[in-house]
Design a protein around this nucleic acid. Structure first.
Length: 857
DNA sequence: CTAGGGTTAG
């Protein structure tokens, strides 16, 4: 395993040079031994309260009070309780409470003091035991002890933390009634309370009505906005504060503002804020550095973040956590583990936040061995009581296919959250158990947007596009769940696969109307969606509107133009991308070469292909050779294509031979087609397409005997042509037609329409192209089967069920057959309709008897 | 004595 870890760490270019090759957590046990507590020996003298640093010292102090008869003295007990609360551990808190409870029992309900209550409420609230804090607050109110101005902020802080909105509002009422609303910091704590529990309007109301505000008032409100999805308002509020008001921000304010910039991924504003910090002389503390590093990472300025990280050193736990969690978010797991290793080298022990990053890295790497060692560390340090850590562990074990272990942790968890359930659902999907995922999804107690996205994404992955859209529709009727960018990416992708333009337009409208942030990833998906729906103009409109474009975005735009048959524009975009200084990758070359191929731009294609290695340092892979074979073959340069295959540095695969075969079919070169088909049948005997293509070649050449032989050998091998399927959307509903399937309810009308078109066509001299019929039946039957091709059924249905003059859009799973192609051209003229036909390879924009492919596809 | 970064699931 050490070897593995070493190689993993060396692979990462971003890990700092000092990284060791030690496996993560290897030396952890040593640290554990070093941190044993130093017990106070019973003989040590009684210390003064201020010097008591352990629970044992406090207990000793209490015993001496009892011995001297001061154990009911409110003042003494108050001091003891206060000191105990200050220590802040669970033991010291429960000791404080015990002492207090005992004394109250002895002396009656009104025994305590305001200060004692304040200490306890604050202690519990800051230890996260908010319910205890609130109970103490209520007990104090009932016992008749008067609160002071400090009591309320402590109580409100507990309510804010535990989202106890009702209790907080009650406290607000008490504050007003008892006249404490005049104190600035009591009002500040109200602003914080409302902001923290999401009632920003109320926070704003309290803030606006304050007669006096200080930096804490502003910071509380800014922080409230920053923590919700209102980061933009937080930034605006900050700039208003420094511009219009006489309030000087401090480091706390700056941390909030920086985190708002991080959320917005707005580097420009972030740098402005950093500039402000530098010029204003505000002290840059550790927390601020962490926030800055986080901001730079989220804005993708990794180098700047790394510079700060190196400058402030790897010995800062929080800084390392910020760095590691961002690496994990970006999928840079090795870098994340590298940071944590580095941190441990400088003697810092990972805390539970570090472990979230570590476990998540193991999960992404599917490395259950490291995952288990993280689990061990979690158990040794008592982190398993934190549900976030358990969630991360469940996710890791599910992703590593250890469902049993995942469920053992799941069953033992006391506080299962929506994240826990989501981890289970996505885990099932990861293990291919979509049904179990759906079942869990249905029965889970609470769903959030991630739950819905998980299910919708899984359905899209499984090519269940209709179902995905259906789930999306039922999501919209749910209270409190709103689609986000991820949802829309899934839906846009489903839409693109269905070729449903009306739905696509609706998706775009929905994004604009609901102000869903259009980032590069969503933008690229939309470009692809419109392109697949046969609306290249909209695709380009979206592309032009993108503020930032990466190579994937350009690839989508190039693909849109290529599919639309506009090869020149596609190549123009490719060159523009290069001019802008982006480094092309292998994928964008496929797009560019495909464009050349569709547009028969042989010279351009050759130039681009040759530039790959020489100018851009991208070595051509077999797909690129495939594109070139396609390009040369379509242009009729079959010999040159064959020569290229022979000269390839790698072994040609079945896909490449298939490109040649397809070209042979178009060119009618029977001999080379047979040769190519032979290669394919050796390399990929299960590939049905090659038999079909070869049989088409023979049929076109009139070599019926050879065609029969091909069919026979298909039959012998048990291979069947996959059924052709066509989709068409009418008024928002998808209709699916399969070749020869007459089950559609409108079938009588469809059949009548087909007959009408066929009759009109044959009247004009159209002869069915029987080379497309692969059936072993007589000619009459063949003509009938040909008339039931899925695209014809869909076209006839489209003609009868859509309004006159509207465009008919059809998506087919296979290459469109030549008889259907001429049928479509004929229909477009006779019925004066534009027909847009998408097949598995390209678009056919058919208008007035002409097709954009130039009858060459 | 009131305000703060990093938090798992898609």
């Amino acid at each position: 395993m050490a070897m593995l870890v070493a190689s993993v760490l060396h692979l990462s270019p971003l890990v700092l040079a000092t990284t060791t090759t030690k496996p993560f957590l290897q030396n952890e046990r040593k640290h554990t031994k070093a941190t044993t507590t130093n017990n106070v020996s019973s003989s040590s003298p009684i210390k003064s309260l201020k010097n008591c640093k352990t629970i044992d010292e406090l207990k000793m102090f209490h015993r001496s009070l009892t011995k001297r008869g001061f154990d009911n003295d409110v003042s003494a007990i108050t001091k003891l309780v206060a000191r105990s609360c200050e220590l802040g551990t669970r033991e010291s808190l429960s000791f404080a409470k015990e002492v207090f409870d005992y004394s109250e029992e002895e002396n009656g309900e009104s025994y305590g003091s305001c200060f004692m209550y304040n200490s306890l409420i604050r202690g519990y609230a800051s230890a996260g035991l908010c319910n205890e804090a609130i109970l103490l607050f209520l007990r104090m109110m009932n016992s008749g002890i008067s609160p002071d101005k400090y009591t309320f902020p402590f109580g409100l802080s507990a309510c804010a933390k535990s989202r106890a909105n009702g209790n907080g509002i009650q406290i607000h009422g008490l504050i007003v009634k008892m006249g404490y609303a005049k104190y600035l910091f009591v009002e500040n704590s109200l602003v914080h309370f409302y902001a923290e529990c999401g009632e920003l309007d109320n926070a704003r109301k309290v803030f606006d009505e304050m007669s006096e505000r200080n930096v804490v008032s502003w910071t509380s409100l800014i922080c409230g906005y920053a923590r919700r999805d209102l980061a933009k308002d937080a930034v605006d509020l900050f700039f208003r504060m420094v511009r219009d008001e006489d309030v000087t921000p401090n480091s706390v304010t700056m941390v909030c503002v920086i985190s708002a910039c991080a959320k917005l991924e707005d580097l420009e504003t972030g740098e402005k804020v950093y500039g402000f910090i530098c010029s204003s002389g505000i002290e840059v503390n550790d927390l601020m550095v962490s926030a800055l590093v986080d901001m730079y990472m989220k804005c993708n300025a990794i180098d700047t973040a790394k510079r700060l990280f190196e400058q402030y050193g790897a010995s800062n736990l929080d800084l390392c956590n910020a760095m590691a969690s961002n690496y994990v978010r970006q999928g840079l797991t090795k870098e994340a583990l590298g940071v944590l290793n580095l941190m441990m080298d400088s003697g810092i022990r990972p805390d539970r936040i570090s472990m979230l990053s570590a476990i998540s890295s193991c999960s992404q790497l599917r490395n259950v061995l490291w995952g288990k060692s993280c689990h061990g560390y979690v158990l040794r340090n008592g982190f398993e009581s934190w549900d976030n850590v358990c969630n991360a562990l469940i996710d890791m074990y599910m992703k590593c296919h250890r469902q049993d272990t995942a469920f053992r942790i799941f069953d033992r968890m006391l506080n299962k959250t929506v994240v826990t359930w989501n981890s289970i659902v996505s885990g099932y999907i990861e293990n291919g158990e979509v049904d179990a995922a759906l079942e869990t999804f249905k029965t889970m107690p609470e769903k959030n947007i991630v739950s819905w996205n998980t299910i919708i994404g899984a359905l899209v992955q499984e090519s269940m596009f209709e179902e995905a859209i259906e789930v999306f529709r039922s999501m919209q009727s749910q209270e409190g769940v709103n689609a986000d960018g991820v949802t829309m990416m899934c839906i846009a992708s489903a839409c693109g696969h269905l070729g449903a333009l009306d739905l696509a337009k609706w998706v775009y409208y929905y994004i604009v109307k609901n102000r869903i942030h259009l980032d590069v990833r969503l933008g690229t998906t939309l470009v692809d969606m419109f392109s697949r729906c046969g609306d290249p103009e909209s695709a380009m409109l979206v592309f032009d509107s993108l503020a930032h474009r990466d190579v994937s975005a350009w690839t989508a735009a190039i693909g849109a133009m290529a599919m639309a048959g506009n090869a020149e524009r596609a190549i123009g975009l490719f060159n523009e991308m290069i001019e802008q200084g982006l480094k092309p990758d292998g994928v964008v070359f496929v797009g560019a070469l495909t464009a050349c191929s569709h547009g028969k731009l042989v010279q351009q294609g050759k130039e681009i292909f040759n530039s790959m290695e020489k100018l851009h340092g991208v070595s051509p892979e077999d797909v690129h050779y495939g594109c070139m074979v396609d390009l040369l073959g379509r242009a009729g340069l079959l010999e040159e294509a064959l020569q290229l295959i022979k000269d390839m540095p790698m072994k040609p695969n079945d896909v490449i031979w298939n490109s040649l075969l397809a070209a042979c079919r178009v060119q009618g070169n029977v001999e080379m087609a047979a040769y190519a088909a032979e290669r394919i049948q050796i390399l990929a005997p299960e590939r049905t397409g090659s038999y079909v293509l070869l049989s088409n070649v023979y049929a076109s050449a009139g070599r019926w005997n050879d065609m029969a032989k091909v069919r026979l050998s298909m039959k012998e091998k048990g291979l069947r042509k996959p059924p052709g399927t066509s989709l068409i959307q009418i008024r928002g509903k998808t209709h699916e037609f399969t070749s020869g399937d007459e089950s559609h309810p409108e079938m009588p009308k469809i059949a009548a329409m087909l007959e009408e078109i066929t009759a009109r066509a044959s009247h004009l001299g159209h002869v069915p192209d029987l080379s497309n019929a692969l059936m072993d039946v007589d000619e009459k039957e063949k003509i009938f089967m040909l008339s039931r091709h899925s695209e014809k059924l869909a076209m006839a249905f489209g003609l009868i069920s859509s309004d006159k003059g509207t465009t008919i859009r059809i998506v087919k799973n296979l290459r469109v057959c030549s008889d259907c192609h001429s049928f479509a051209k004929f229909a477009s003229k006779v019925y004066n309709r534009e027909i847009i036909l998408r097949d598995n390879n390209r678009f056919h924009f058919i208008h007035q008897g002409k097709c954009s492919c130039g009858d060459f596809w």
